[in-house]
Computed example of a mutant assay.
Amino acid sequence: MLSPGARRIVVTLAAVAMAALTFRLGLWQLDRAQQKIDLQQRIDQRGVMPPLRTDELATHAAQADAQFHRPVQLTGRWVPQATVYLDNRQMNGRPGFFVVTPLQLADGSAVVVQRGWQPRDAMDRARVAEVPTPAGEVSLSGRVAPPPARLYEFQAPGTERIRQNLDLDAYARETGLRLRPLSVWQTGAASEGLERDWPKPAIDVARHQGYAFQWFALSALVAGLYVWFQLIRPWRQGGRRGG
């Protein structure tokens, strides 16, 4: 059995450790919130920069990271036989497909263009509408984006037109194209049966601020309980006994 003095030391150390840990977690959440605020500022700043030209588009991953969310003007030729439909993609809360077609550039490389969103056929989920793809040289406006977001899939990636995800390295081997390490969201009004109301990047600052408040509140609660039970309450009880 611990003596009363030893027990007070153990309680004090435990309370200090818990209060310090929860306070540190609160600071960590505030730091995560600030990181996302900084990210949003970078996205906003890049969004108003002059459009990149075709010859300025990134050729390696580090360069691509610095171009994400920038406007871009592309000129090239579609590779329609390589069009794929990414399943389980939503736009404005509706399920459907992202239609992806490579655009071959003048230097022989290609960039994956997310051309827009197509709704799913309510009667046959494996049916897709063919998207008109102009022959010859085309120009389009877009926004540089990371490769299409990956969703969880229960089976190995396939090479069908309808698929869950698109791995750029595997897709390059499949098509024989030299792909740039990024994709482009085609922008502009709806056309060719495709909608282009692309979602904005989710910068959820409020969630981290809420977590920080919870951690700080828990830290304050631990400190308050320690002060009450270890300092104020014994002092009050001692005062009553002395009176």
Rank of each mutant, 00 (worst) to 15 (best):
L13R: 07
R233I: 01
G142V: 10
K36Q: 12
S3A: 10
Q45M: 05
N88Q: 14
A172S: 15
A122M: 00
A206T: 12
R125S: 11
A126N: 13
A17H: 00
A62P: 06
Q214S: 09
A206Q: 12
Q118W: 01
S109G: 14
V11E: 09
T187I: 07
W228Q: 06
A206W: 04
P201W: 04
R120A: 07
A15Y: 02
F229K: 01
V84E: 11
N88S: 14
A149G: 02
R161E: 06
F216D: 05
V184G: 04
A190W: 06
E137A: 06
T83G: 06
N92T: 03
A15C: 08
Q90G: 04
R180Q: 05
Q40I: 02
N165I: 13
E160V: 06
L25V: 04
R143W: 06
S109H: 14
G158I: 03
Q67F: 02
D167Q: 01
P234T: 02
A126W: 08
M18Y: 00
T159E: 10
L221I: 10
A15F: 01
W78H: 09
G93E: 15
A190N: 06
V113D: 14
Q237W: 07
R240P: 00
S219E: 08
E195L: 15
L218F: 14
T12V: 07
A190H: 03
Q73P: 06
G76Q: 03
R127V: 11
D31W: 13
D87R: 09
W215M: 05
L177I: 01
T75V: 14
V16R: 00
I162K: 07
L52R: 14
R115S: 07
M91R: 15
V111T: 15
R32C: 02
L13G: 13
Q41A: 09
A61E: 11
T175K: 07
D38I: 02
V113G: 09
R173Y: 08
A145Q: 15
R196P: 15
A20W: 00
A126C: 07
V113A: 12
L21N: 08
V99N: 01
S3M: 05
A212M: 14
V222T: 11
V222H: 07
R207I: 09
H208Q: 03
A217P: 03
H60S: 12
G108S: 12
D121M: 08
D38F: 03
V205D: 03
F23Y: 13
S3D: 09
R46Y: 12
P71K: 11
D44C: 04
D38C: 04
A190D: 12
Q186H: 09
G193H: 00
V227K: 00
P4H: 11
E137F: 02
W28R: 01
D107E: 08
V138D: 01
T101Q: 07
V205S: 04
E130W: 11
A61H: 12
R120W: 07
